[in-house]
Design a protein around this nucleic acid. Structure first.
Lengths: 209, 209
DNA sequence: GATGAATTCAAACGTTCGTTTAAATTGAGC
DNA sequence: GCTCAATTTAAACGAACGTTTGAATTCATC
C-alpha cells in the first residue's frame, strides 16, 4: 500500500513478517504469486459477500426491482465490514486494492478482471432492473463511475488533504464517508439519460471547446 | 504511466529519449525533481486554464451563481483540451496524473497538494454559491468525489475492461466519456443533503450492518 | 582560432533487487 | 530412534537501480 507492488521489496516484507527471505519463493513461487494470494484472500470473500447480500435483497424484494440505494448497499456493506476488521488490517487492504486498480501491470489487471467479472455481471443486471429507462451502454458507464468512485474513495483517504480544508477527526470514519457517497452516486445513477434532448438553461457541455 | 514512479528507471527514460543517463541528474538534480518537472509542465497550465475559464463563466453570469454543469465544464474542458493535444501525448499525461493521485509517496502528495490548492479553493466557492443549501462539510465530500471520479475516469481507460462487456470503438473517446460523467456528477452534487431525514422506502443505508 | 564555461559522455560507484542453491533443521510415521 | 520428506536458513547469484565522477565534447564569445 505504501510503495506499490514493484517498489515493495520482498526483504521488507519478510523481515516485517519475521520469516526468511526465501520463504516467499518456496511457499508462493514468486513475488507476483504472493501478491495475488494477498489480494485473493480478502477480495474473494468480499465479492462473495456482495453477491450473497444482493441475492438476499432481491429475495426480500419478492420480484420487485431493488432501489439503487439498496444495490449500492450490497456493494458497500461488505467493503465496510472489511474496513472494520482491524485484526486483519482491513482498511489498509482496501487502500492496497485501490492502488491495484490504478496499476497498469498486465498481471494485476488480468487478475482483477477475473476476480470481478462475476460480481460485476450480477450488479449490472440488478442496476439494469432498477433503472430500466437507462440504456445498456449508458449504464455501463455509470457502473464504471460507481466502481471508480468507490475504490478511489476507499483507497485515497489521504486525498482529502489535497481537496479539503482539514477535517480533524472525520478522516478515518469510513462509514460516514460511504453514507455520503452512496446518496451521491444514487442520484447520479438515476439522473435522466438524455445527452441529445433539449437544454433547460443553455449550457451545452463542451460545445464551446 | 506504465510502471509508476518508483519502478520506472532513469535508464528506460533516457534511452527512450535518446540522451545520456547522467543528463537527468545534471539538468534536474534527481529523479524526483524530474518527475515534478514533468507534472508541472502540463498540470500548471491546465489548472490555470480551469480557473480562467471559471472566471469567464462567472463574469458572463453577471453575479448570478453558475450551474453545476457550468462549473464542471470549467473543470473538464481544460482536461479535455490536454487529452486532445496528441503532439504532446496528452492522454498519457492524464493517466500519469491519475496514477500520481493514488501514489502515497510523500513528495508526490505534497507536490500535488500545492499544485491544486488554489484551483480547489476557487471551485469550492463556486460550487458553494451554486449549491447554497448544501452544508460546507457535505460539499467538501462531494468535491472530493468529483475530483476522484474525474481523475479515476481519465486515468483508467483500462478499467473498462474490468467493468464492461467490450465497447469496441468507444474506449478512447474521452469527450463522450466526460459528456456522460458530467451529468452523472451534477446530479450527485445537486442531490438533497439530508442524511437524517425520514426515509421514503425503508432503506436505511448500512443500518442493518 | 583560442578561451572558458556549459553540456555530454562512458564508466564506475555502492546498494538493492528477485531468485536460486545447498546445507541445516524440523516433524510426522513406522 | 531412525527415515525421509517438508521446511527453514544463510549465503550467494546476476542484474538493475540512482547517482557520481572526470574526461571528452560542444558552443558562444572574444
Amino acid at each position: 500500500m505504501e510503495h506499490g507492488f514493484e517498489a515493495t521489496s520482498l526483504r521488507l516484507i519478510t523481515t516485517a513478517a519475521g520469516v526468511n527471505l526465501a520463504a516467499v519463493n518456496y511457499h508462493f513461487g514468486s513475488k507476483e504469486e504472493l501478491f495475488q494470494a494477498v489480494l485473493t484472500r480478502r477480495l474473494d470473500p468480499m465479492n462473495h459477500d456482495r453477491m450473497q447480500l444482493l441475492s438476499a435483497y432481491e429475495i426480500a424484494a419478492a420480484g420487485k426491482p431493488l432501489t439503487c440505494e439498496k444495490i449500492l448497499a450490497a456493494m458497500f456493506i461488505p467493503a465496510l465490514k472489511l474496513a472494520r476488521d482491524y485484526e486483519q488490517g482491513g482498511k489498509n487492504f482496501l487502500r492496497l486494492l485501490g492502488r491495484a486498480y490504478a496499476d497498469p501491470a498486465p498481471f494485476i489487471r488480468e487478475f482483477l478482471s477475473n476476480q470481478y467479472r462475476e460480481m460485476i455481471a450480477r450488479f449490472r443486471s440488478a442496476f439494469s432492473r432498477a433503472l430500466p429507462h437507462i440504456p445498456r451502454e449508458e449504464l455501463s458507464w455509470r457502473l464504471h463511475f460507481v466502481m471508480g468512485a468507490l475504490s478511489y474513495t476507499l483507497a485515497g483517504a489521504d486525498m482529502l488533504k489535497i481537496i479539503s480544508q482539514p477535517h480533524p477527526e472525520e478522516t478515518t470514519n469510513d462509514e460516514l464517508l460511504l453514507k455520503r457517497l452512496a446518496p451521491f452516486l444514487a442520484a447520479g445513477l438515476r439522473s435522466p439519460s438524455a445527452p441529445s434532448s433539449v437544454e433547460d438553461d443553455g449550457n451545452h457541455l463542451f460545445q464551446e471547446a
